[in-house]
Simulated scan of single mutants.
Amino acid sequence: MTLSAIAQEPIVEEPSSSDPFDIYSAYRRILSNENVAVPLAAILALSELVEKSRAGTMFELVEDLNKGAEALRQRSSNPIGINAGSELFIAFVTLFPHESESFVDLKTELVKQGRRYAQEALTYRDKIAALTLGFIKDDSVILTHSYSRVVMQALLLAHQRKRISVYVTEARPGGLGIRTCDALTAVGIPCTVVLDSAVAYVMDKVDIVLVGSEAVVESGGLINAMGSNQMAIIAKAANKPFYAVAESYKFHRLFPLSQYDLPTHTADILAFPRSSKRPAASVPRPSVALMKSIPTPALSRTSSTFMSELPGSTMTPEQRKRNPEVDYTRPDLISLVFSDVGILTPEGVSQYLVGMFAG
């Protein structure tokens, strides 16, 4: 189903008034629609909370919304999108003109406005794709990262008007780059999956780098799938433009100074496993027999094939937990940000955020 068709249908079902309201269940139900991004799901879940809330004053309503947003954050390993959507909706509620005859009518209007905004926001990817098209030349080779719905929209539109080829990183450990490659190949776009560790190797062959975003922060920097930062650093060194695409509901009042300022960073990220209590001398070394049992690669076999046969050549679930899901890209590494509110420099994002939350 196309975005325009979805925009004409309700994003969410009307919640039952007889059941106790669980905001996280509502959020998960809304997010099951693949076209709804995390910030929009948070906005719609908070809209349902307004509908269910027994608050009789604006102060009580905002308090309920803050508690609801916190409940969503507590149950998510990556609350960045939830934070962006929640702060946008709560700011809207706070600044909404109180012209209704009663507080009940005001809450009804807030719910309508929240759902109306979410429906309109489904069209933002089309606007961004149209803006991006002017920066993609015919016969362009594009490097992208992982899987992004708005990047996909831009690439599909470019494919309709121009000839393009795409490299996409595999984006381990989730491997979402494979999904991107399959989707692009299905519509006839030449696409090749690139190892995450081969970004520098392929950079000389590309014309532009185009990535999505989980959030664009107040500094003008970018939070996106792990590996975006190193891609931007390499693009800068190779003098290749690094473009980010982001819907305005992903603009987030956060000012990280480093990777470790992100809300996703915890003490477990990149932590070393606890060492054994046994003295080092008592730890057995691999036996000669064990070392000889590892097969020697034949000349006809690639090193990747050989490594895939070795025990422990893929990450365990515990190892994956110790690795971050997203990283932060500094604004000086970003050429432009394409959004539904226009083509912005990183400095322009900062100015827009100040105006958006200033009322």
Rank of each mutant, 00 (worst) to 15 (best):
A200D: 12
A280R: 15
M307Q: 13
L106D: 02
G175S: 09
L155C: 14
E214K: 04
D138F: 01
A271M: 01
N78H: 08
E170I: 13
S197T: 12
Y249A: 03
Y249L: 12
V93G: 04
S76T: 13
S165R: 14
L133V: 10
S25D: 11
T266Q: 09
L257A: 14
G359L: 02
E70V: 11
F251V: 02
D139I: 00
L184Y: 05
R253V: 13
P317N: 03
M58T: 09
I6A: 10
R179S: 15
R116T: 15
R322E: 06
A41E: 00
P79C: 07
I6W: 05
L44N: 07
K137A: 13
V354P: 02
K277F: 11
R330H: 12
S197H: 09
K277P: 10
R28V: 14
D64Q: 05
V354A: 11
E13P: 04
V193C: 11
D332V: 03
I234P: 09
N35G: 10
D207K: 04
T2C: 11
S300N: 13
T57R: 06
Q153C: 13
S165A: 15
S102D: 09
R330I: 08
F92D: 01
S165E: 10
L257T: 12
A130D: 08
S148K: 07
S282F: 12
E347K: 11
Q319L: 08
F135V: 12
L155G: 12
I234C: 09
A298D: 10
Y260M: 09
E99F: 12
T329E: 00
E247S: 13
S248K: 01
